[in-house]
Design a protein around this nucleic acid. Structure first.
Lengths: 208, 208
DNA sequence: CGGCGCCTACGACTTTTGGATGATTCGCGA
DNA sequence: TCGCGAATCATCCAAAAGTCGTAGGCGCCG
């Protein structure tokens, strides 16, 4: 039986240590390297060609795990990526998976789940934390409540503190249209104010 | 030389493993227990009377590290608390310190800093991550732009999407007062709308 | 003691939002 | 081709938000 070679990308030394500590004692898993930046992980990937790369989506600074996933896919398409992150908003999950990640495990999951995910990913499965899988299953059925692209654009502008007039200017539409989009978004999000919409959208991970 | 007995409170198994992995090999440190909930950590504290308790401020569910700190202070005043958390907004730091924490270490700090913090706390020092200490030093110099406690409270409610009326009810004050606090906050943050204030406060790390 | 800053509160006024409704255009899929 | 959802815009009305000035009570500090 082959050993699964794992690399770790996370900006928190303590979390890296935790992942190592969880995986290294496991027979059949070998941690071949870790990194705290996208740069570093690419070197590791180049040097080690790991079977599985654990990726934290929320790296420090302005780096994003998404970038890392995309970059790794390009360099080493045979490496499987498993996202290991603290939060589980739908936007992150979807974009990570579509960027090429094969699995998604929450940091508050038990270690056994992590280990299972590593083996699963190495075998070509798509291990998802139950919570994540659940919500994903619910929403893949063409959620009629999904916000349209335009509604999201407007909402993002609202989240930046813009008023309807400046949003209208920024998007080259009239205030009436801005209000129209917002009203629709309110209905879908089941709120009645712009700040409420921002809070709810943020909770759902629709906007950052 | 006495051994420093350490307990760990964090809802993420992987982070707990990381903290253990970082501390256990250190001569002079003994990890006597860990916990993922406030309940559990209190049992550990009762049973072990650790010298130092590492506390994550952002526990899962509705639990807060602040509660844990307050509860531990009450049960075991001789235990030193060190906050170990990922994000470092000023509010969290201040309230944690005033609740009784003696130190504050960021999760993206190197392990050496964590170890130093444990020993420091055990010896009665107040170990703070450089970043944290820095901002704290800056802001203690009576920043005239600093939001007052009340203004922050109102702003946080706004960030949750509440309108002035429900904020007034929640804080047992009148809408007029809510508006007053918000107006002051707007001036200090140099914005003119509530959503703008939330965005700006979030940028500055004043609210989560 | 005497400010000074914070929290509280009111009222009147202006601006911004949100709701209801309706209409037009466009593209996409049954 | 017909219909539907998305995007666009308009109007009117009601409600919420924001501005400004004013002011009392309170605690802290020199």
């Amino acid at each position: 039986m082959t050993v699964v070679r794992v690399a770790i990308l996370d900006d928190h030394p303590i979390v890296r240590a935790g992942l190592r500590a969880a995986l290294e004692p496991v027979v059949g898993i070998e941690v071949v390297g870790d990194a705290s930046t996208v740069e570093q992980i690419l070197h590791v990937v180049d040097a080690e060609s790991p079977d599985v790369v654990l990726v934290d989506l929320h790296l420090g600074g302005d780096q994003s795990g998404h970038d890392a996933i995309a970059a790794i896919v390009e360099r080493s398409p045979e490496s499987r990526m498993v996202v290991v992150t603290a939060f589980d908003n739908e936007r992150d999950v979807r974009s990570a998976l579509s960027a090429g990640a094969t699995g998604y495990v929450l940091k508050d999951a038990p270690e056994s789940e992590l280990i299972a995910a590593v083996f699963g990913a190495a075998q070509g499965q798509r291990p998802l934390s139950p919570l994540v899988a659940n919500r994903l299953a619910f929403s893949t059925t063409a959620d009629p409540q999904a916000l349209t692209e335009r509604e999201l654009e407007v909402l993002e502008a609202v989240a930046e503190g813009k008023d309807n007039t400046s949003i209208a200017r920024a998007l080259f539409i009239s205030q009436a249209t801005v209000k129209s989009h917002l009203s629709h978004a309110f209905t879908k999000l089941d709120v009645s104010t712009r700040t409420g919409a921002v809070a709810e959208a943020r909770r759902r991970g629709l906007i950052r």
